[in-house]
Design a protein around this nucleic acid. Structure first.
Length: 316
DNA sequence: AAGGTGCCCAACCGCCCGTAA
DNA sequence: GTTACGGGCGGTTGGGCACCT
């Protein structure tokens, strides 16, 4: 079963690449493209295996590779994406033009991971760490998270991490779809879930403590017209769900992740727009396609698969 | 100056998946 | 349906370097 490793042939060079080898590889790919990686080394006159050539090219020699330190924006994007996707380095790299999965993986393991641990955040779950060594160091974060978690648990058993927030956003939007299509004259509910300047800004009576969301969320109860029920609790259509990423003051620096978010917003607009040419069934499938594209969490997949496979209750 | 230690990151390893024969 | 291949992916390694004692 399977096949033998491509590099097990004896006599093939391993280890660091020399400038001469790099030049041979670059010249060959410029002239002929890489074609079959296995055949490439012979054609290029390299005593390497194809896999080694491929890695050297994709991780180092490719002309569109961005060198240098990661910017704060890139770092934030990596953290946000990692909270959503886990160790899907290639998927994360897809949102950071010019960065390779290997580079991002290394940067995560050597910098971000340590930074998060120092901040008392578990780099795997993106939640405050609870092990005894870090309880004191993480006390402020724990208190803040507990504050928010308690509030949320009362209503919807949601946990404060980016993944849950993203899930809630998706459910939120799915439910909006249902509502919009169920009520022919639905009030135009604008849930700009990603476009806000920040989660806690622009809210009345907001506490000075940015982690204290009790005040900012308390008004939800007084807005029954703009609220809706869901399997996981009650949401306000206006602003209960924070954006995944705090928008940068400079919008030009927003990452490609926003593209996916914009697709979601676009779908939102289309489904809210009575003149939209999309059918509801199409909407449903499009949502499934978008969300399923990058969802990896099994729990989350279960929801998606269930939603996508079940007969649509409002099928035309 | 020399040895020890820890960090960084390019490169490798092994597994998995999609595809063609 | 099975097998082999090509390629992609995430995890791990180890050489080189900087810093510390």
């Amino acid at each position: 079963m399977g096949r033998s490793p491509c590099c097990d042939e004896s006599g093939l060079k391993k280890g660091p690449w020399t400038p001469e080898e790099d030049q041979k590889l670059i010249n060959h790919i410029r002239k002929h493209g890489h074609g079959s990686w296995r055949a490439l080394p012979k054609q290029a006159g390299l005593n390497r295996c194809g896999k080694s050539c491929r890695l050297r090219w994709t991780n180092y020699l490719r002309p569109d590779i961005k060198r240098g330190n990661f910017t704060a924006e890139e770092e934030q994007t990596i953290i946000n994406l990692h909270s959503l996707l886990g160790n899907k380095w290639s998927s994360i790299a897809g949102h950071l033009p010019g960065r390779t999965d290997n580079e991002i993986k290394n940067y995560w393991n050597t910098h971000i991971r340590k930074k998060l641990i120092q901040m008392g955040i578990d780099p795997v779950t993106h939640r405050p760490r609870t092990d005894h060594l870090n309880v004191l160091a993480a006390l402020p974060q724990l208190l803040a998270a507990a504050n928010f978690n308690n509030l949320l648990t009362l209503n919807q058993n949601i946990q404060l991490d980016a993944t849950s927030i993203a899930k809630a956003q998706w459910l939120h939007s799915m439910i909006q779809l249902l509502n919009n299509n169920n009520m022919t004259s639905s009030s135009s509910v604008d849930i700009n879930i990603f476009g806000q300047s920040s989660f806690l800004e622009n809210r009345p009576n907001i506490s000075e403590n940015p982690y204290d969301v009790t005040q900012s969320l308390s008004h939800v109860d007084h807005q029954p017209m703009d609220s809706f029920s869901s399997p996981i609790g009650v949401f306000s259509h206006q602003d209960i769900i924070p954006p995944l990423i705090s928008a940068s003051p400079d919008e030009s620096k927003q990452t490609q992740m926003m593209i996916k978010n914009k697709e979601i917003l676009k779908l939102n607009e289309q489904t809210s727009n009575p003149s939209s040419t999309l059918t509801f069934t199409q909407d449903h499938q499009a949502w499934c396609d978008i969300i399923d594209d990058e969802a990896s969490d099994s729990y989350w997949k279960e929801i998606i698969e269930q939603t996508c496979s079940e007969p649509w209750p409002f099928r035309e």
